[in-house]
Structures are given as structure tokens and as C-alpha cells.
Design a protein around this nucleic acid. Sequence first.
DNA 1: GTGGTCTAGACCACC
DNA 2: GTGGTCTAGACCACG
Lengths: 130, 130, 130, 130
Amino acid sequence: MINIDATSSTPIYEQIVNEIKEGILKGIIEPGDKLPSVREMAKMMTLNPNTIQKAYQELERQKVTVTIRGRGTFVSEDYKPRKDEEKLMEVREFFKKGIVEAYYMGFKEEDIYEMIKSLLKELKGVEEDD
Amino acid sequence: MINIDATSSTPIYEQIVNEIKEGILKGIIEPGDKLPSVREMAKMMTLNPNTIQKAYQELERQKVTVTIRGRGTFVSEDYKPRKDEEKLMEVREFFKKGIVEAYYMGFKEEDIYEMIKSLLKELKGVEEDD
Amino acid sequence: MINIDATSSTPIYEQIVNEIKEGILKGIIEPGDKLPSVREMAKMMTLNPNTIQKAYQELERQKVTVTIRGRGTFVSEDYKPRKDEEKLMEVREFFKKGIVEAYYMGFKEEDIYEMIKSLLKELKGVEEDD
Amino acid sequence: MINIDATSSTPIYEQIVNEIKEGILKGIIEPGDKLPSVREMAKMMTLNPNTIQKAYQELERQKVTVTIRGRGTFVSEDYKPRKDEEKLMEVREFFKKGIVEAYYMGFKEEDIYEMIKSLLKELKGVEEDD
DNA sequence: GTGGTCTAGACCACC
DNA sequence: GTGGTCTAGACCACG
């Protein structure tokens, strides 16, 4: 389920964080679900346990997961979205970089909207029916 | 004109590249314009000339600028957009990360479209009226 | 294995790039092989690590190598040749310069073909027999 | 007749040298012909006279031209090809770089011979009938 | 004046 | 351990 590109410039632990957050949005992983243990995950993905550990810590820091001592790591059931100024700028930056690069690839506004639309569908399409 | 965030995890030279590409899109810098010399820019931004040099070389590698020996670095007059598969994935990734983070901030689809729209206006709004 | 001519007008980092690409063609270095670390290579060649770094980054930019974070730099296993117009012109230029200079040395057509043949053998002769 | 690319990494004076040597091979300029004066050439090509001067000096150093004080610069009538070891290595290097890059573009041996053949025709085709 | 290369030495994030 | 970034300062070729 989790695809890692070892040659990417994005750190592996960050790729894991992204993939898990994406999996939750898509409904593949649900609130309350237990994540595999650090060791288990490390073995599955043939990665250094320290890398998984760092990913889990980051997820917890973002309140996406909670860790219960002795039980494991679970997807938060009561995740409360929080807009802080910093996060908002970060999102803007992602979009801005995307748009700038898109323009330099010859994209038109419509192409950009098209891509956004397709990504929105991919990420939340599952729950579209509620 | 160029804002650098020294605390950002994005390397300084990359921030410079982004800012210049953005400035060109916005029409603040125009094709044919000369960029400040490496030393001049370094002094202006109180950065090491090597850092500017790296940014300029990356811009040239991307064909955003051309350098003329002994004269300086200029914004390309004949930039030809090219879509390669890799670049396309990169853009998709930027947007995907933006959308995922936006959802985790509590954004709705409309909020995302709103932000994209505002960014598109900011980046290309100047030329929209001709 | 890598021979550097410090007196050459060709930059050292570029000589390194060329030598490594040549080594791969000759089969001396194989896809998947790890290159010496930047520091190791720098020590071996008594060069500054930054110089090696620049060579390695250029190799990666050309997709000749990939780097895996924390592990090192490796020869690409899946190198996909791509002809772009610009590269084609570059190759033509190399050959043209070679031919012009050859004529000025008194070479005949046969001599030129002879030299090309000998170089082709040298560069790919190893795999010729499979 | 002389095409200069100001954005090329090849120095302008060197491009001039190459173009003139090529023109002589092609028979466009003939032994005994007078080259335009430095100032004249500089005005024609809108280049700095120093650049032309440097090109002419290099041509003379290579014995491709001779300068007669007060009369001007002329294409040598009695050019004697000289193979020195150094020149030979230089030619080999040009060809080697061309071949290496050609292989990395996906060229086969035949493609390389094809390109060489086409260049030979282009450069000496005119005199093929003697 | 311009950009390009190189050295020396430092600090950092990642695995 | 690995590569990546940055500073400081030097030297060079080119126009």
C-alpha cells in the first residue's frame, strides 16, 4: 500500500507520513485503525526502524495518530482540523510551486483546474456519496 | 524584490530560483531583461556569491535564462515550454501535497478552488487583460 | 581508474563526469554499482569534496546515476537514452571539431574512419562478443 | 557566413576560429584569400575588436593564416599539416566525447558512422571530384 | 566588468 | 556513515 521511492529527494520518513495521510483521506485507513508496529512496518518495507519511528513521531506530532503505550499507534478518532497561519502558508506554497511549474510546462488555467479536479476526485472521491 | 526565508528548509538557492521564475510569470521581470550580476546580487542579498551562482546555473539549466560570456545573465526571450513525464509528476505531487494538507486544515473543495483561483490571478493576472 | 589532467582546460568535475560515463560504457563500472563516497573519492584523488560533489550532481542530473539518501551514489540500472535536438547538435559539434582538426593534421577520410573504429572498439568492444 | 552563438559556452573567439577553418576546408575561403581587417570584421559581426583580434592571433598561431604587416591577414598558401602527439590526442578526445555522448543518446555504431559520413561529405564534399 | 572553477572548512538532515 | 548546502576567499578566461 505504501510506495516509497528511495531515490526521491523527499526524505523517506516524510514519504511515509504523506502516504499514510493520503490513505486516511482516501478511506483506505480509517479512524481508530491500528498502524503496524514500528518493527513490523520496518520489516514489511525493508527499511530502517529508525525511519519508521521518525515517520510515526511526525504523524503523532500532527495529531493524525495517537500512541497508546503498550498497545500501539492508532489513527486519531477525533482529529480536529486546525488552521494556523503557518500551515496556511505552507499549503499556499505547495500550490504556488505547482502553478509556477505548470505554467513553465505550458499548462493553461484550464489544464491546472483539470489536474486539481482529478486529484480531488482521486483523494476524496470515495466519500463523495455522503 | 526577492524574499528569502533563511529558516526555511528549502535551500536558499532554490528559493531564489523560485522567486525569479515567479517574477517572470508576474511580468515583473521580462524576457531579455538582465539579471543583476552574481556579485551584485550577492551584495544586495548579503549572501555568498557562490549561492547566487548556483541559483543562476539552475535557472540556465532550466532554460529560463541564458548567459552571455562577459555580459551577464538574461531572461530567455524564446522560452519553449516542454512537458516531460517527470516534470508532470512533480507538479502533480505539489498539488497533491497541497490538497492533502488543505483537507487536514479543514478546507472544503470550494476553499481549495478559491485558493487556486486567487493564486492564478496573482501569478498571471497582470497579462489577463490584453 | 580515473585520470585527471589538471592542466587541461576542461574543468576537473567535467573530466570526472566523462571518465565515469566512459567507464560505464566500457563495462568497468556496472549498473547498480556504488560509486565511492564523495569524501572517499576526494581523498583518493586529492581533490576537494566540493569538486567531486559537483561531478556527482551532474551525473545524477543526466540520469547516469541515482543517489539514495544516506546510502550513496549508484549507477542507474534503468538508464533510458533520450535524444533531444540539443544533445544531437552537441554530438555533431564534437565530431565536426574532430574532423576539422583531423584534416588540418593531414588525415584522410580513411584515417578518420580508422580512428573512429578503434575508439568504438575501445569503448564497446567488451560487449561485442555476446 | 560566420555564425556566432553568443550564449554558447564555447568562447566567441574560438567559434570564429572554427568557422574560418571550416570555411577553408569547404573551399568557401581559399588559400591566399585576404580576411577582412579586424575592425571591419568587428563591425560586420558587431563584436568587440579584441575578440576578432584574439581569433586572428589564434589562427596565425596555428599557421592557418599569415599576417603581412600593413597588408592584412591572409589564408596560408603553403599550409603543411603537422601531426604532433598533442594534437592527435585532442582529436581523439573530440571523437571520444562524441562517441560517448552518442551512445548515451541511444546511437548504434551504424548511426555514428552515418553521422561521420554525413559530416565528411559536408566538409570536403566540394573537392570530392579531384 | 562578467560568469566559472576550485579549495578549505563548516554545519545539517537523513538513514 | 551518506550527500547537500553555505561561507569565505582565491584565481582564471572572456569580452
